[in-house]
Every structure is written in C-alpha cells, then in structure tokens.
C-alpha cells in the first residue's frame, strides 16, 4: 500500500475507474493540461487523452448541463467545478434537471454524474473560496451529497459515487487535500454511500462530524479523554444526504448525549437535520439538549478572521463538557 494525500487518492480513484469503464469521462475548467488547480486530475489527460479529460470553456452551467446530456446518453461524467463557491452558476442545472430527470422522464432516464468541488475554509483563500454550503445540495431531493474526510475514504467514496446511478455532489475538504497521508490500497476499495462510520469508540458522548471537521473532532476526543476522562464516540457522516442516523441514534441511546460539528452555517445546516432525527429516534434517551459547534450564520470572513469563525478542537471540548454538565 502506498501512502497518499487526498489529492493522490482521488487521482487514483479517477484513474482506476477510467481504466475499468470507458463511460467515465472528466470535464471541467483546467482539469486537463493543468491537471486541475489542485492537481486532482494530474496526468490523466496524458493517460486517457483530451477526449476523455476535457478542458472546457469557462462555464459552470455549461459543464453541468453538458454532463447531464452525456449521462442521459449513457456516459458517466465526472465534472469538476473549481471551487464550490462557483457551483451557484450551475445550481439551476442541478436542481432543475440533474435532480429531476429520473422523475420527469418517469424512469426512462437517469443521471449518473458526479460533481466534484473543493469546499471549506482554513486555507487563507480569497472571497467565495472558503464556504461550506453543502446544505443547499443536501436540501435538494434527487441529489446525493458526499463529503470525505481523508485520503482512504475519499478514494473509496469516489469509486461509489462514480458507480452510483444517481447524481452525486462530492465536496472535497480542500484544507485536507495535502494535510496528511494515509495508506491507500492499490486494489479496489469501496465505501457505500449513505452510511456513516464510527471512527472512535466511547460511552459518554456521541460526537457527529464530517469532512474537515473530523481531525479537530478526533483531537477534541483525545483531549477529553486525557484531560477529563470523558470517552467520546465519534461518527464521520461521509454522506450528508441521504442521511442515515441509525448508528448514531444507537450510540446516543448508549451515551445519552450528542454534539454535532460542522463548519457550515448553523441555521438550517446539516446539524439541524441530525438533531431533528435524533429527536425522532432517540428522544427518550437524551439527557441533555444536543449542542452544535458550527460556523456562524454570517458571510464567511476573509482570512484574517477565519480562525475565530472556524470550529476548532477547543470549541468542541467546551461544547462536550457543557453538554455533559447540563
């Protein structure tokens, strides 16, 4: 097994799926010759040619609209939108068509496409380059919304996303692109969409996070154990929508407490849905209100202030302790 960054692991997933299936093609701005601005598709144009790794004109709606047509015709397009902050240009194509074609054609067509886009803050980026607006897509019936948290699961989820018969929005936490390496097996590995994974066992508290919030959540869990003897069970959602809280509710029935973490804005964010599901599925086991550690409901500040905006391990530790004390 090779030690890989998330960028390399995603590149591996794309390369292997393209080798296995000639229906898989890539399209986007700068994905070919440049290999993508984050180099996720580096070298793929050399391997598969410009007909399968398509440098498009600068038009996000064009990219997604064309991908829908390709998918209807039987291809498996993987679009890259350079930053999630530019997916609003193509939002209409996702909402009005990608999400609805299966239904509108009463099952004749479906749209097996993936839209990849880097999301999230913490990299001292420009305006529109740091937001976490996964809720827009999770809120749209017909779309799936996936967010990996490390090299290995990003590869395994990307394979599932490409093979999925429905449109998948795949947000990549850009602050983790090169933050750490993991062993990623050369042989095929897949993770099912729609199933969260438990990444740490614990009996006192259920902590739910995803994407770039996994490292601070694990750091907080470690600090809570060593400094306060609190055992935290940590779940990585991996798929935001469709959301399955079965395992999380099971954990809450054991711990009686839950905290949800995301860098997305708080109001109407994924955390709100998770809390609502826990109310439905584990209300009588909750010993305290569920707390959220999230981005605030304001426009993401330019980077001089982003540390004060972004949830961190300290904030998570405090939220867990307050929840347990209440």
């Amino acid at each position: 097994m090779a030690k890989m960054t998330m960028v390399q692991a995603l590149n591996l997933a794309l390369r292997q799926e393209m080798e296995k299936d000639d229906r898989v093609i890539l399209l986007g701005e700068d994905v070919g010759v440049d290999g993508g601005v984050f180099r996720v598709s580096d070298g793929l144009i050399d391997r598969f040619g410009a007909e399968r790794v398509i440098d498009t004109p600068l038009a996000e709606s064009g990219i997604v609209g064309a991908a829908i047509g390709m998918a209807v015709y039987g291809l498996r397009p993987v679009c890259e939108i350079q930053f999630s902050g530019f997916t609003y240009f193509n939002f209409h194509q996702l909402e009005s068509h990608a999400a609805r074609l299966r239904h509108r054609s009463q099952g004749k067509y479906h749209v097996p496409m993936v839209l990849r886009a880097p999301y999230g803050g913490g990299v001292r980026a420009l305006e529109h380059h740091s937001e976490s607006r996964e809720a827009y897509y999770a809120h749209t019936p017909g779309l799936k919304m996936v967010i990996p948290s490390g090299p290995r699961n990003s590869r395994a989820l990307m394979v599932s996303a490409i093979r999925d018969p429905d449109p998948v929005i795949f947000f990549e936490p850009k602050s983790l692109y090169r933050a750490f390496r993991e062993e990623v097996p050369e042989e095929e590995e897949i993770l099912p969409l729609g199933v969260p994974v438990k990444v740490r066992e614990g009996g006192d508290m259920t902590l739910v996070a995803y994407g770039a919030m996994i490292p601070p959540s694990l750091e907080a869990a470690e600090a809570l154990k060593s400094n306060h003897g609190i055992e935290v069970e940590v779940f990585d959602l991996l798929t935001i929508s469709p959301l399955d809280v079965t395992l999380i509710a099971e954990s809450v029935r054991k711990t009686g407490h839950a905290v949800v973490v995301h860098e997305a804005h708080r109001s109407f964010g994924p955390g709100a849905e998770i809390m609502a599901r826990l109310m439905e599925e584990a209300f009588f086991y909750l010993e305290a209100p569920v707390k959220r550690v999230t981005g605030y409901d304001i426009i993401y500040p330019l980077f001089a202030r982003e540390n004060a905006y972004m949830p961190n391990a300290k904030r998570i530790v405090r939220a867990v302790r307050e929840t347990l004390a209440s």
Partner: peptide, 23 residues
C-alpha cells in the same frame, strides 16, 4: 473578530446578536 458580524444586514437579527456574543 466581532467585526466579522458587521455589514450582514441593515439590523443584526437577535440570533446573530447572540452568536456574536458566543463567538
């Protein structure tokens, strides 16, 4: 850091006043 709450709306709604304190 509290200045990140400036210029969001004409008037900051109550939940954002609370979030500013929290932040």
């Amino acid at each position: 850091p509290e200045d990140m709450f400036a210029h969001q709306y004409d008037e900051l709604p109550p939940h954002l006043l609370r979030q500013r304190e929290e932040m």
